[in-house]
Design a protein around this nucleic acid. Structure first.
Lengths: 211, 211, 211, 211
DNA sequence: CGTTAATCGAGACGGTACGTCGTGTCTTGGG
DNA sequence: CCCAAGACACGACGTACCGTCTCGATTAACG
């Protein structure tokens, strides 16, 4: 049992407050963008004192991570019967997520902040990166079960494959939508999936088959 | 000649100041990160009054764009005789650039700010995005001249190809280095180039050949 | 019997707590001054929860009144056989009391607060002013008994006399010690007593004899 | 030339701001009392940024000293031809001053704060105490010139006399009005003046003549 | 060669948000 | 009913930057 809940003394923290604060944070992000999010404003929106925010999150950054993290929990790898369909589904889900104003406002800013703050970086990894990477693992395993991909040569090679595919999918979609500022319509998704699929399904004897 | 310098009256602006300010901005970025860069601090570092900064740049964001833009001007597409070599060269240059603390601190933050500020977005595109995209155009043209790639089916198709390749290269390298936080060593670059090269050089009759 | 203690149900209040709290308040006053006294800090010093403080005193002000009030209970009018000796004795006691850091820190601040808060004003009067005024009454009665002072012309005149003498003694000693910041050594006390004694013992037919 | 005005650089401080801030401080004192005076509120009332307050005064205490100091500058010793008339005039002026809500709110609180803060104590002395003490010196000199008081035995004795008279007048009037909370009407002033005058004009051979 | 006008440094200015602290209340679990 | 612990809403604190402004002092080109 990992939940060794210390029977804490004093008034317990309000669970409602957490929910209200995170929702208020997302609302503020969507309305005002990253720069417009203010601890004081979030507190007012959530009907909560500023002190309560600071008692639970050390700063705006960690608060925003938690606020947007739930969005990434909704991503899921539905086994659709073919690698192409699975990839397209994941890319579409990710594109939909990036189309929401709250994630748009938060994502790049969080990554930028995280590049300076190790604690924040850890939090971002656990709350945002890992849930996404999990999908790649799942899709890869499903494709291997179907015989579309060769089985793992070694655990290390498998991890390297997952990493490069994950960075390519996440980075490319983010760059197109958030930097280039263009939408990811079905046609683009199809083209991008083709681009990905070609090397993945190249002849296994070709060393490049394991990218 | 576009430099139609109106021979204005009064004391001319100091050219030294521009150089000192941009250098000071890069230094502050490298030392303190995006959040640590302050107009007042940059002014002090450059030995210049705050007024002088604001007379030349409307705000911190535009100043930082110009300060890091010069780094992107150094990127160049050297025709090395093969598409693989050209791609690897460009990726390596881009990875080297992203390894510098000043660009790390600035890039994602600028993209995040730009997603809310249209004027900044334009400036970012001109100073940072276009110089990079130019390389893709050049490399593609060289490869076509060498016969490694099929000629353009149409100008629109060519643009779409350039866009998707550009987003993939830039996005993936940025994601690996700035978000995943891992380095882009020669081995990774080689693997990533293979991943890119496979669909590009697939049989032309294959519709996927034009990604 | 005024102590009609209603035999209330439930756990009785700890008597130790009162003592500990008042002592902690005086200690905090002496160490940190008026501004440094904090309900939270007093609670910690007294080893008591903040709730316990507020259950017994409505606010910091009333707590401090009670904390310093006991100091004023120590003042006493010892009949030393002459009006001069009695006055000098009282002034010396009062000067000694004002030399303590806790009363220095509290007295003026309490008076200042009381000038805005009627409830506090009442409490200050009962706990601090009246015990002092009592001494003047006692000394005056003793002097009359000894024939040093004329008997009361009327109760109203007596009250007016006591008031003016009390304000003069208390105000002057406080002003010298707390505002001018100088000590009240025996020599100064003697001079001040002379100043007081001269009009008091002036010929009774002189209307000024009754100041 | 004591005004060695350093030819300061940069934008000079607004003189209007000083006036507006001090007036706003007095208004806030009169309306809300000591506890109600807030730096933010004063800034708003004065139409000024909080920064501007803090640039000129290190804290609320020093600000209030300067704000009420001007009230004490209005006190003056008008030579009315007799020591009694002069004393009654001064006492009346001081009583009138203490009847104003802004001085009532400020005075005791300032004295209380000053008892802990040496810098504030100095400021209070220069801005409030000294202007008052000056009056005692002037009145004494005038009375000596008229022959109502004996000339100085020595400078030290003169200072001691001034000190004790000053503490007696200031302390007693303050105590009656601010602590006892009663008014100083002409009758009380007359009685108090008599109390003071008797020892002052006692026979010079009487050692008590020099109180 | 003086006038004129834009530049420069310095720093004060009105704002806004910050993160902390103190107050007095409320809510737990446990005497 | 009391108590310790501690969360809570509220509001002031003093600081840091922002981007603007007002100074006196330079520093060219123009007349």
């Amino acid at each position: 049992m990992t939940e060794a809940v210390a029977p804490r003394k004093g008034r317990p923290r309000s669970a409602d407050a957490d929910v209200a604060i995170l929702a208020a944070t997302r609302a503020a992000l969507a309305e005002l963008g990253w720069g417009g999010v203010t601890m004081g404003d979030v507190a007012v929106r959530a009907g909560v004192a500023k002190t309560t925010l600071y008692r639970r999150w050390p700063s705006k950054n960690e608060l925003v991570v938690d606020a947007v993290a739930v969005l990434f929990d909704e991503l899921e790898m539905a086994d659709l019967g073919s690698l192409r369909a699975d990839i397209e589904s994941v890319v579409r889900q990710f594109a939909d997520l990036l189309a929401r104003p709250e994630s748009q406002a938060a994502l790049l800013a969080l990554f930028a902040e995280a590049s300076r703050d190790p604690a924040l970086r850890r939090r971002v990894r656990e709350a945002i990166i890992h849930p996404q990477k999990r999908l790649v693992h799942q899709g890869r395993a499903a494709a291997q079960a179907r015989g579309e991909l060769a089985p793992d040569a070694s655990p290390e090679a498998a991890d390297a494959d997952v990493d490069i595919i994950f960075d390519t999918i996440a980075g490319t979609v983010e760059h197109r939508m958030l930097v280039s500022g263009e939408c990811a319509d079905p046609e683009w998704i199809s083209r991008f999936t083709t681009l990905l699929l070609t090397p993945l399904t190249a002849l296994p004897q070709n060393p490049a088959g394991s990218v």
